[in-house]
Amino acid sequence: MATLTTQVINLAGLGVTYGAAAASTKIVCGERTFLHVKNTNASSMTVTLSSTAKVRGQAAADVVVTVPATTGDMMIGPITQDLFAGVSDGLASVAYSSTTSVTVAAVRI
């Protein structure tokens, strides 16, 4: 599972670079980190962020976001450590229901 490189927005501007989505990826958690997903496929798709948080011993639900078909463009986040950091590596795990015509970028402000 590859880790997306987080691109940082700054005063000089940022031309975000998108990569093809894989079945699953990881992201460095951060209060100002977001996942940007673009879907040009003819079908909608879902992005699932695996929650690792627990409240009173009960697991918090995963976050599932539907990205519309054709011109779907979703910013998802923030990808916070308290909700998503994996126990073994501290990274957030993301799964995509489809990767055909789907591009992604991790962005931090």
Rank of each mutant, 00 (worst) to 15 (best):
G86D: 15
P68N: 10
G13Y: 08
T46Y: 05
Q7H: 14
S97H: 06
V37W: 12
V94S: 04
G13A: 01
L4S: 06
T25H: 14
Q58H: 12
T70G: 00
G15N: 14
N10A: 14
Q58F: 14
S51K: 03
I27P: 07
N39E: 08
A20L: 11
T100Y: 12
V63H: 02
T80N: 08
Y96A: 02
V37N: 05
V87A: 15
G15I: 01
A53H: 09
Y96G: 00
Y18T: 00
V102E: 10
S51P: 02
M45A: 04
A95Q: 12
M74H: 10
K38H: 09
G86Y: 05
L35E: 06
C29D: 05
G86M: 01
M75Q: 06
S101H: 12
V104P: 00
D62S: 05
M1P: 01
V16S: 10
V65F: 12
G90S: 09
V87N: 07
V102H: 08
N10I: 01
G72P: 11
V47Y: 08
P68I: 01
G86R: 02
I109P: 07
N41A: 13
H36S: 04
A20H: 07
D89T: 09
D73P: 03
V102I: 14
M45T: 03
S43T: 13
S50C: 01
D73F: 08
T25A: 08
T6D: 15
K26H: 01
T25E: 13
V28P: 03
R32S: 10
S93N: 12
V65K: 11
L35T: 02
E31N: 14
T6V: 15
P78R: 12
D82C: 01
I9S: 09
G72C: 08
V65S: 03
D82I: 09
G15Y: 12
T40H: 10
D82F: 14
L83D: 09
T17G: 08
S88H: 10
Q58T: 11
T40E: 08
T5F: 13
V65T: 13
A85R: 02
Q7T: 08
V37S: 06
V28T: 14
A85I: 07
T66D: 11
V107A: 04
K54L: 13
N39Q: 07
